[in-house]
C-alpha cells in the first residue's frame, strides 16, 4: 500500500526544469532512499512531499491531495528534517526535542508529561539523553544534527522525510541513525549520498536524473554498478562481506 504518491509533478525556475513529469510511489512501512547526482532535483522533490512548496493535484498522502490537508494535520502525520537548519536561538537540547511534540500540544497549554516522556525516549534513541541540559552553542554540528533527528522522532509521524541527514554524522552515528529508522518501523523517505548506507538499510530506491525519475524499485535489484556508473560518471563495485552488501567507487 502506498502512503504517498507523486503524479506528473513538474517544476521550473526561470525556464529551467527542476522536476520534469515526476511519477513516484512510496510504500507504507518501508525505507525509501532517493539518490542521484547533485542538482538532479532530490531536495526539490522532498520539498513538495513536505509541503514546503505548493503543488496542485500532484502529491497525494493516503490518496488525498496534500494541499487539501491543513498544515496542523500534516504535522501530525509527516515529520520533515530539512537539509540545513536555520535555527538562530541557543536553546537547550531538551527544549528543541520537545518542540517535536508541538503538533500534539493543545492551544495555550504547556507540553504534557507524556510529551516529555516521548521526547526523552527520542533523545535516548539517538544517544543524546546525557546532553539534554546542554545548550546548542556548546555542541558540534554532528551533535546538533542528532538533536534535530530526535526532534523529528519525537513527532511520532507516520512518515519521516529526511534530506541528507547523515551529512554531519560520523560513521558510528550514521549507522546508529539508520538502525534507529529501521527499528522505528514507519515509512521513511531519505535522500542519501552514502550509497552503502542506502543498500544496507533501505528497502526501496528512487534514482533521479536531471529532474526525472530514472528508475524505482527494490534497492538490491536496482543499485547495480552499471547503473550507478552511468549516473555518477565513476566506476562502481558491489561486493558482499560477512553477509552484507557494499557499494564502492
Amino acid at each position: 500500500m502506498n502512503i504517498i504518491e507523486v503524479k506528473n509533478l513538474s517544476y521550473s525556475v526561470g525556464g529551467k526544469k527542476i522536476l520534469d513529469n515526476v511519477n513516484a510511489t512510496f510504500t507504507a512501512g518501508k525505507i525509501t532512499a532517493i539518490i542521484g547526482a547533485n542538482g538532479c532535483g532530490k531536495s526539490t522533490l522532498m520539498s513538495f512531499l513536505g509541503k514546503t512548496r505548493r503543488s496542485s493535484n500532484a502529491v497525494y498522502f493516503n490518496g488525498q491531495d496534500v494541499e487539501k490537508i491543513s498544515a496542523e494535520n500534516y504535522a501530525l502525520r509527516v515529520a520533515v528534517l530539512p537539509q540545513r537548519s536555520k535555527m538562530v536561538a541557543d536553546f537547550r537540547v531538551e527544549d528543541v526535542v520537545l518542540m517535536g511534540r508541538f503538533p500534539y500540544k493543545k492551544k495555550f497549554r504547556d507540553y504534557t508529561a507524556e510529551d516529555k516522556l516521548v521526547a526523552r525516549k527520542a533523545m535516548e534513541s539517538v544517544g543524546i539523553e546525557t546532553m539534554s541540559r546542554r545548550k546548542l552553542s556548546q555542541m558540534s554540528g554532528g551533535e546538533i544534527q542528532r538533536v534535530l533527528i530526535a526532534k523529528t522522532l519525537a513527532q511520532e509521524p507516520e512518515l519521516i522525510l529526511m534530506d541528507e541527514p547523515t551529512n554531519h554524522l560520523d560513521v558510528k552515528y550514521k549507522v546508529a541513525l539508520m538502525e534507529t529508522l529501521q527499528a522505528y518501523g514507519k515509512t521513511v523517505i531519505i535522500v542519501l549520498h552514502d550509497l552503502s548506507l542506502a543498500i544496507q538499510y533501505c528497502d526501496e530506491v528512487i534514482v533521479m536524473v536531471e529532474g526525472r525519475v530514472r528508475i524505482q524499485g527494490n534497492v538490491k535489484e536496482i543499485m547495480q554498478p552499471d547503473l550507478l556508473t552511468e549516473i555518477f560518471g565513476v566506476p562502481f563495485v558491489k561486493f558482499e562481506h560477512a553477509g552484507r552488501t557494499y557499494i564502492n567507487y
Binding site: G50, T52, A75, V80, P82, M99, G100, F102, P103
Partner: peptide, 17 residues
C-alpha cells in the same frame, strides 16, 4: 511555545504545523 518554534526557522515551524 509558538514564538520558540519560529526561532527554529520559518520552514521548520511550518513543518510543525
Amino acid at each position: 511555545h509558538e514564538l520558540d518554534l519560529i526561532l527554529l526557522g520559518r520552514e521548520e515551524a511550518r513543518h510543525l504545523g
